[in-house]
Design a protein around this nucleic acid. Structure first.
Lengths: 353, 353
DNA sequence: GCACATCTCACAAACGTTTTCATAGTTCTT
DNA sequence: AAGAACTATGAAAACGTTTGTGAGATGTGC
């Protein structure tokens, strides 16, 4: 039915080993037989059987991606970037969604580990121990989390919070509410501490609204709390939450940004389409996915391209990377990608009180 | 290193063939040896090697999904539903994004066909011929497209348009603009014709704004055209487009829904969070993904569950299914899923002119 | 002109599983 | 009690590939 390596060998008048080596580009095969074999192979439309190859090499042709929620735009962007890069490598992307559920994540990880030997974990809820154990058996790359010496790609969360805070301070806000993400989230911890660090010594008061599940429902609750807190601005853990906040505020007829300003994090595609358009910290989600793949495929190009991203508004150093690296218990082989505040309509001068 | 079937066989004191049969649940193996083998196998943490299994059975353990754009919420929802269902079957989901590009889609299809033998194509741009040829070699299921006798799952597009139109008519709109999707899109063709059918004989004028690429940019252009057309309502091919329209109208300071009403299609998660919240036709995207998997895995449960979906507001028959099936050149084994208009703030009484 | 290095290729062994076929043991039938 | 029918298991082939090893051929140096 399908053409195998034997068919090619017979047609080219060589043995299957020669075919295999010729197609692999091995140097030990003579140039003209190599060309002949290659020509015959495309003539016959030969495609190596992946299963057979994987069986003997032990090396899989696909890499896995685990995300907490595909319906969260941030993760679908990461997925898109990851999948794109994977495909250009001639590999395939296997994906799994954990529904933001810890126990579900365990089982997904186990199931996926049986299928792929390399995987990317986007913002996992799993415990450090589980992750480290997993890292022993299969090679993994973390997205938005740093742990031990597992390779990782993260946004410069602390710097993002610093940018957002500076912006709000410049607008005269002196009482700012933070609507946090899930307590188990590494990025929430980093963002929260980054905010605290940036606020230290400045004339501003940070009100902690608590932890919310990212998603509209969480945002609704956060909005009411923010109003009650008397803050003139609310900084959300991510855009999902910020969207919920905006929705609830509109529902209650609260003027944004007249009465209260709102800042998100991630810059999901819809952020700029809202009314008012959401001021948010842009994280290069697609690029994170792509970089994670590169890290996984061999850290060769794991450094030096940081500056090549976007507009790169001059100063992007600050305390960000160092601070981020300090967490997680140890130094990790992490790529820290720069983030950039997108100022839009949802933030304005603080109202005079 | 890893435990193979041989290790289990040795530990259980049987041959590998018995282990294979015992784990497969074959009836010919004695109950107590079966149990013993199974116990030993979990003790040793045995996991069958997928590559080896696939090599001998020829049946792959993963199914592919091709989507035009993962960053489009509709497709990430389909992906989520598909992936979920796939995982409960013990299979894995391989995905690929074509960036809404026809030539890219060709190459993605070819690459994926080499890896999986069963795939789901969500709203492909490929030509009928390419698709039919592909269907010969691998078993496929289409989402949002009907062609020949290829199994498919589609939303009841025509009925959705009918619902939207009825709603707008009830609000007094008599001149309604349609912002279409890409000309190559099957669903756009069906929605457009569904709209025409529903409008026939009613006291309403449909203004065709043309074809737009789904995405914010297209929406912006459509908004300006809609205003110029003098229509009191604009019906968008999908929510992506509607979002762009809303954004542009807000930017131009046009009152929605006071001056003009906007209706979308798909009901992506953000639709209800916008200000004004978007009136749109809800399509069960996740469920489409799940149903596509079921269709692919053997049509057994391919019928009879249509009504089990959502609130199911009584009448849902109408001209929808029949009309939809009429297109595509032949009768297909298609599951038509009911859709339901979600009335929100973006539609209101037509202004008196 | 012969030994020896070098190059090119074929043979064959793995990889871990499923599945067909054969065989030993067991129960049934007469 | 003996052959027949049946049951449970084992041996071995096959799936298509990569790769280590060895053998023939070709060329080089003396």
């Amino acid at each position: 039915m399908t053409t195998t390596i034997h068919d090619v060998a017979r047609a080219a008048g060589v043995s299957i080993s020669t075919v295999s080596r010729a197609l692999a580009g091995s140097a030990v095969v003579a140039p003209n037989t190599r060309d002949r074999v290659r020509r015959v192979s495309v003539e016959l439309g030969y495609e190596p059987n992946r299963a057979a190859r994987q069986l003997v090499t032990g090396q899989g042709q696909s890499i896995g991606l685990v995300v907490p929620d595909l319906e969260n735009s941030f993760y679908s962007s990461v997925t898109k970037g990851m999948q794109n890069r994977v495909r250009t490598e001639g590999l395939t992307a296997v994906i799994a969604d954990t529904d933001e559920d810890v126990s579900r994540e365990r089982e997904v990880l186990a199931q996926l580990a049986a299928v792929v030997d390399r995987m990317i974990l986007a913002s996992p809820r799993s415990s450090d121990e589980d992750l480290l154990r997993l890292a022993e058996r299969t090679s993994i790359v973390l997205v938005n989390r740093m742990l031990g010496d597992i390779p990782a790609v993260v946004g410069d969360n602390a710097d993002g919070m610093r940018q957002a805070l500076s912006h709000l301070l410049a607008l005269g806000h002196r009482r700012i509410a933070y609507a946090g993400g899930p307590a188990t989230s590494w990025s929430d911890a980093v963002r929260r501490s980054g905010l605290a660090t940036a606020a230290a010594g400045r004339d501003v008061e940070i009100v902690d609204l608590g932890a919310f599940r990212p998603g509209q429902a969480g945002g609704l609750a956060a909005a009411d709390l923010a109003l009650a807190s008397g803050a003139s601005a609310v900084l959300a853990f991510n855009d999902q939450l910020a969207l919920g906040v905006l929705g609830r505020l509109a529902e209650r007829g609260v003027d944004v940004p007249g009465r209260i300003s709102v800042v998100g994090f991630d810059d999901v595609p819809v952020a700029r389409l809202l009314a008012p358009a959401l001021t948010t910290v842009a994280v290069p989600a697609q690029r994170m996915g792509a970089v994670a793949v590169e890290l996984l495929l061999g850290g060769r190009d794991g450094a030096g391209r940081d500056g090549a991203s976007g507009g790169g508004r001059g100063r992007s150093g600050g305390a960000g990377p160092a601070d981020a690296a300090r967490r997680g218990g140890g130094v990790t082989a992490a790529r820290v990608l720069p983030v950039e505040l997108q100022v839009r309509r949802s933030t304005a001068q603080a109202p005079v009180s």
